[in-house]
C-alpha cells in the first residue's frame, strides 16, 4: 500500500465569470521513504497540489488516500487531526510564531496533540538539537538568521514524527549558501527514511530528490526516478 495515492484529482475554483481548473485529473502514488520534488512553472498548480497533499484543502473530485485512509471528504476538524499527526510543513516564509521562542514554536504541534508539558519540552529540545540549534532554543525568530529559522521550522515539522515532510520552496527565501545547508539537512533526513516532498521551481533543489514529478497546466507532464549514489 502506497503512503499517498491520488486518483483522478480535480481542483477547480469557481470564479465570477469562469471556472479555473488548477488540477485536471492528477493521479500519483508515493511510497514511504521517497524523496520527491514536484516541479513546474508558475501557475501550473504546484501550490494547489501541495495544499491537497498537506490536507489543507480537499479536491473538487477524485480520491486521496493517505496511509490507506480516504481523506478527500473529511471535515475541518478531521483534517486538522490528520495534519497534526501525519504532515510536517516547511514553508518558504518559515511561518514561525513571531512572539514565541524557538522552543515554544517547536512545542506547538504537540500542544494540539495533547502531549504533556514535560514530554513536549523534552521532545522539542531533542528536535532542535537534531537540527543543530541546541544553543538557540530561547531565541525568538527575529533573533535568528533565515537559515536558523528554517531549521526551527524543520524541527517543528518533524517533532510529531509525521508520515510526510512537505516543503514548499524551502530555500526560496534563503541565500544560496544557507539554501545548500537546508538541502543537506533534507538529504540527511531522507537517508534516515523520512518521506519528503518538496515543491519547487528550482532545478538545483530538484537535483537532491530521487524522483521528479513535473506539472504543467494542472496535469502531470513527466514523472521520473533519478538514481544517485
Amino acid at each position: 500500500m502506497p503512503l499517498i495515492r491520488l486518483q483522478d484529482i480535480w481542483r477547480s475554483y469557481q470564479m465570477a465569470a469562469e471556472t479555473v481548473h488548477a488540477l485536471r485529473g492528477v493521479s500519483l502514488s508515493i511510497e514511504r521513504g521517497e524523496y520527491v520534488a514536484i516541479m513546474g512553472p508558475s501557475g501550473s498548480g504546484k501550490s494547489t497540489m501541495m495544499n491537497l497533499l498537506g490536507c489543507l484543502d480537499t479536491p473538487t473530485s477524485g480520491t486521496y488516500e493517505l496511509n490507506g485512509t480516504d481523506v478527500s471528504h473529511m471535515d475541518d476538524n478531521e483534517l486538522a487531526e490528520i495534519r497534526n499527526r501525519e504532515i510536517g510543513f516547511v514553508f518558504q516564509t518559515f511561518n514561525l510564531l513571531a512572539r514565541a521562542t524557538a522552543l515554544r514554536n517547536v512545542e506547538l504541534p504537540m500542544v494540539y496533540a495533547g502531549v504533556t508539558a514535560d514530554e513536549r519540552r523534552e521532545k522539542a529540545m531533542a528536535a532542535l538539537t537534531a537540527v543543530g540549534l541546541a544553543d538557540r532554543v530561547d531565541h525568538q525568530p527575529n533573533e535568528l538568521s533565515g537559515g536558523q529559522r528554517q531549521r526551527v521550522a524543520v524541527a517543528r515539522a518533524l517533532v510529531n514524527t509525521p508520515s510526510i515532510l512537505l516543503a514548499d520552496e524551502p530555500t526560496g527565501n534563503l541565500d544560496s549558501k544557507t539554501g545548500v545547508e537546508i538541502l543537506a539537512l533534507f538529504d540527511q533526513l531522507a537517508s534516515r527514511g523520512n518521506t519528503i516532498i518538496v515543491v519547487t521551481h528550482e532545478e538545483k533543489v530538484a537535483l537532491h530528490a530521487r524522483r521528479v514529478v513535473r506539472i504543467l497546466d494542472g496535469n502531470i507532464a513527466s514523472d521520473e526516478r533519478v538514481n544517485r549514489p
Partner: peptide, 14 residues
C-alpha cells in the same frame, strides 16, 4: 497568518 499557522500544524476549530 498566525491562525493559518496554528491550523496547518493541527489546531482544531475549538
Amino acid at each position: 497568518r498566525e491562525i493559518g499557522i496554528r491550523k496547518a500544524i493541527g489546531a482544531k476549530r475549538r
